[in-house]
């Protein structure tokens, strides 16, 4: 039962992966194939070299997806850090040593290539075991949730909606079909509260928006130019009245009133029953306004069993971190600015 063979991904494994991942991706053969290409092939920062597969004889029984994320680190410039994602173990092999073995195999490869860290923003069932096996947690942090009547938005309908005027800022808030160049430009203007932040340039926006298994909804706020934007994510494999939430993955604005108006417009118009957003790295005035917008924050209780589904970052050093360099401090919660990062934004 434990005679597993662990390998890297190769193109000849494509069919097996597309079929195996149906239990997670649920996109069908064409959708899963396109997602595989987008997540690991078209990723601007890392190819599929670290995708890890486990086999029992000729049967694929486990997979660790590893995709590239790019971060700006003060004093260091840009750095690619691999992220764990799309991890699946076949039901008959769960609860055993397979997941841990795949992780150790992967970490060993990263160490050999002098990649210092492996990140995981996911909601791993194996979370406690990971934390007992050398992984470190940053977080969890609060998430805000709004539940409404189900709102729908069919193909093409979002961008056909009328613009509204922000109730506080007076800015014109317009639904648009895709991200605009003004959005990464605005993201670059916002002041960071941490020394490590995800790169949000045009290349990143372009790659993210091409996720074949996701729908993105964009709002832009304008007042003599672009003064804010909001981007929300919803999986493309669920209907608008399905259980998956719509997640505000980022919202940037030049002032608090515009920010508030964008979030208010989003809560009022995004499809789905539930809208969520991470409550971290928000300016105090913005965090305080959430309740009036219908978003109720759920804050960490400190109890692992209760906080297990709150967003967090877990990370594993591969053992090649330069102790004197800026990447040595990544386990400190204070260095991270998670704006623009959302687990769902990368699914």
């Amino acid at each position: 039962m434990n005679d597993y063979r662990i390998t890297t991904y190769e193109p000849r494994h494509r069919g097996a992966v597309v079929e195996f991942q149906q239990m997670l991706w649920q996109g069908g053969a064409a959708g899963n194939s396109a997602y595989l290409d987008w997540k690991f092939g078209a990723n601007p920062y890392l190819d599929d070299r670290y995708v890890t597969l486990a086999w029992q004889e000729s049967e694929l029984v486990g997979m660790l997806g590893v995709f590239g994320s790019c971060w700006e680190v003060d004093g260091h410039g840009r750095v690619m850090l691999p992220c764990l994602a799309d991890t699946v173990v076949a039901p008959a092999h769960r609860g055993g040593p397979l997941f841990g073995r795949m992780l150790e195999w992967l970490v060993e490869r990263l160490r050999a290539d002098e990649v210092p860290w492996l990140l995981d923003f996911g909601d791993q069932p194996a979370g406690p075991a990971m934390l007992m096996s050398g992984w470190t947690a940053v977080g969890p942090w609060p998430v805000a949730v709004a539940e409404r009547e189900v709102l729908g938005s069919g193909e093409g309908e979002w961008s056909a909606r009328e613009a509204v005027r922000g109730s506080r800022s007076g800015a014109t808030i317009t639904p648009v079909a895709t991200s605009l160049p003004e959005m990464p430009a605005l993201a670059a203007e916002t002041r960071s509260r941490g020394s490590v932040r995800v790169v949000r340039d045009e290349e990143y926006f372009r790659w993210r928006s091409r996720n074949p298994l996701a729908r993105y909804f964009h709002l832009v706020a304008e007042e003599q130019g672009t003064v804010g934007y909001l981007i929300a994510h919803r999986t493309a494999v669920d209907t608008d009245d399905g259980p998956t939430p719509t997640t505000i993955v980022e919202c940037e604005a030049l002032d608090d009133d515009v920010w508030r108006d964008l979030v208010e417009a989003a809560v009022a118009t995004l499809p789905g029953k539930v809208v969520t957003m991470w409550v971290r790295d928000l300016a105090p005035a913005r965090e305080q306004s959430l309740a009036s917008l219908g978003l109720s924050p759920t804050r960490p209780s400190g109890r692992l069993s209760q906080d297990i589904h709150l967003p967090k970052l877990v990370m594993r050093s591969t053992g090649v971190v330069d102790d004197a360099g800026p990447l040595a401090t990544l386990t400190s919660p204070d260095v991270w600015d998670m704006r623009g990062v959302s687990g769902r934004g990368w699914r």
Partner: peptide, 11 residues
Amino acid sequence: GSDKPAEAVRA
């Protein structure tokens, strides 16, 4: 020990 109920705290 804790007197808090076993649920995440909602603000």
